[in-house]
Write a protein that binds this DNA or RNA. Structure first.
Length: 497
RNA sequence: GACCCGGUAGCUCAGCAGGUAGAGCACCUGACUUUUAAUCAGGGGGCCGCGGGUUCGAAUCCCGCCCGGGUCACCA
């Protein structure tokens, strides 16, 4: 088929038609044209006192001999066009019939009318080939189902599936809404390094790279936290960054080695303030994107209206499993785990608590703030002012998944140094996910960081909910895939095969 | 990492009691001036994921590998 298309391109050039011209005067989108004329025209009615010009990819052609209907698709949707031999002239019509195929990019000019069946259509008076495709599109009815092609060649998926194209448009909108909200609250969007000397702000294995000028290993950031706090120390009071972070770990429906995080830091605020901000932010985004706070995710209705439920981690686990993570012994907790067939080597009390939580987290479906995690599992959070066994921390749980993590930030340099020290010991003992000692960050804290509340949101996971996507790969346009040997030979012209 | 399922035409899939590789869409040729999965007639198109084995003969059976999907485990 490629051979056939390459032949056609040659034919076009022989006729003096450039199959890859430089531009086109696209005046209106398919959507705009429909908005303008759809209501005013009745089926069969013609509006030939106006002219429209648009462009897009040919998605289907229904040839009737001396006339043809076809659809073109652009960023905003699809629109039908109608071309007729006696209107456009036999030469041009012949070019359309023989040298225009599904998949090509076409510019069309003409006037709007409504077909017998009532679909707004452009009566084509002139067209121009803007790009010849030499590969065929996927099947028009069943579309593209092969996940491998969907992820490896997302451009094909976007062409074939309006849902896919729209999903990434929605992603853009959601991120824009978040920025709009935060800007309105006086937050300043900043940038921090992606290449770092030491990683921190999360527990994760980093990607390692090498800097030639200093002949030293460097890392890709695993979080933006420690640099954003340096902004706060420097004098900024409300900052945020939306950006990629990298974690050299497994891939799953909710994990990607490269993902987008939002982190924000708010001086003089505590975790209560952050909690209020978080639910306002989420509600705002959902409402502005969908016009309602209720959306369906995988067949279940999720209501994002404020206030979100607040639930103390201790209370919830006690209620569900009958064990108290603050009062009961490790043995008691172990017993509960064993009763539920969880048999894992226990590394620490914190690990036990995490495992208990894993047993109950899927019971939390509607947006819920999980509060006051024990100190053992919250190394970066301040202790609770009323109960030193827990921290001023919350996670936002939706559909059993963590969407956000926040706390009153630790700003005591001595305490921070101690925690780094403990972490680096773990690191030396082989724990690749333990924090590295970040002496410059401790030094920065020594200059004094105001009391600060911080928030991290997994943007991709949030977008999964808002686009009803079952896996994170569906909301990352070009997800990481196994490179696989590029065995496809690409040949042009001449050669026989 | 363990287990399960899959990889056949550009796409969606059938074929798997071992015996010349199929359909629909797409493509090419022809007919058709309001179709929308247009219709009708004809035609071309395949390293059956890769490598090995069994066999007179393998898309089909056996072994290994690669790639993908799912479940569980690990991880947060």
């Amino acid at each position: 088929m490629r051979k056939q298309r390459l032949k056609e391109i040659e034919e076009l050039r022989n006729m003096g038609i450039e199959p890859y011209p430089y531009g086109y005067d696209k005046e209106e989108s398919s959507l705009r044209i429909k908005e303008k004329y759809d209501r005013e025209l009745q089926a069969g009615q013609v509006k030939d006192d106006v002219r429209v010009s648009t462009a897009g990819r040919v998605m289907s052609i229904r040839d009737h001999g001396k006339s043809a209907f076809f659809h073109i698709k652009d960023q905003d949707g699809r629109i039908q066009a109608y071309i007729r031999k006696n209107s456009i002239g036999p030469e041009k019509y012949d070019i359309f019939k023989k040298l225009v195929n599904v998949g090509d990019i076409l510019g069309i000019k003409g006037f709007p009318f409504k077909s017998r069946t009532g679909e707004l259509t452009i009566f084509v008076e002139d067209f121009q080939i803007l790009s010849k495709a030499i590969r065929p599109l996927p099947e028009k009815w069943h579309g593209l189902k092969d996940k491998e092609i969907i992820y490896r060649q997302r451009y094909v998926d976007m062409i074939a599936s309006d849902d896919s194209l729209n999903r990434f448009k929605t992603r853009y909108k959601i991120i824009r809404m978040i920025k709009e909200f935060l800007d309105g609250r006086g937050f300043i969007e900043v940038e921090t390094p992606t290449l770092v000397y030491v990683t921190g702000g999360a527990e994760a294995r980093p990607f390692v790279t090498h800097l030639n000028v200093f002949d030293m290993d460097m890392y890709l950031r695993i979080a933006t936290e420690l640099y954003l706090k340096r902004y706060i120390i420097g004098g900024f009071e409300r900052v945020y960054e939306i950006g990629k972070v990298f974690r050299n770990e497994g891939i799953s429906y909710k994990h990607s080695p490269e993902f987008t995080s939002l982190e924000l830091y708010w001086a003089y605020a505590d975790y209560e303030d952050i909690m209020n901000l978080t639910e306002e932010l989420i509600e705002y985004v959902v409402k502005r994107t969908f016009g309602t706070t209720k959306i369906m995710y995988q067949g279940i209705e999720i209501d994002f209206s404020r206030p979100f439920k607040r639930l103390k981690m201790r209370d919830f686990i006690r209620e569900k499993l009958g064990v108290d993570i603050l009062e009961d012994s490790d043995e008691d907790m172990m017993r509960v785990l064993k009763e539920r067939d969880v048999n894992v080597p226990i590394k620490s009390r914190g690990h036990l608590i995490n495992k208990l939580w894993d047993l109950v987290e899927e019971d939390v479906v509607q947006p819920t703030f999980l509060l006051e995690h024990p100190v053992e599992i919250s190394p970066l959070a301040k202790r609770h002012r009323k109960d030193p066994r827990v921290t001023e921390r919350f996670e936002l749980i939706i559909y059993g998944r963590e969407i956000a993590n926040a706390f009153s930030e630790l700003n005591d340099p001595v305490d921070q140094y101690q925690r780094f020290l403990e972490q680096s010991k773990l690191r030396e003992a082989g724990d690749e996910e333990a924090h590295m000692m970040d002496k410059d960050f401790v030094r920065a804290l020594e200059y004094g960081m105001p009391p600060t509340g911080g928030l991290g949101i997994g943007i991709d996971r949030l977008i999964m909910f808002l686009t009803d996507s079952p896996t994170i790969r569906d909301v990352i346009a070009f997800p990481l895939v196994n490179p696989k040997s590029l065995d496809e030979e690409i040949e042009y012209g001449g050669e026989e095969k």
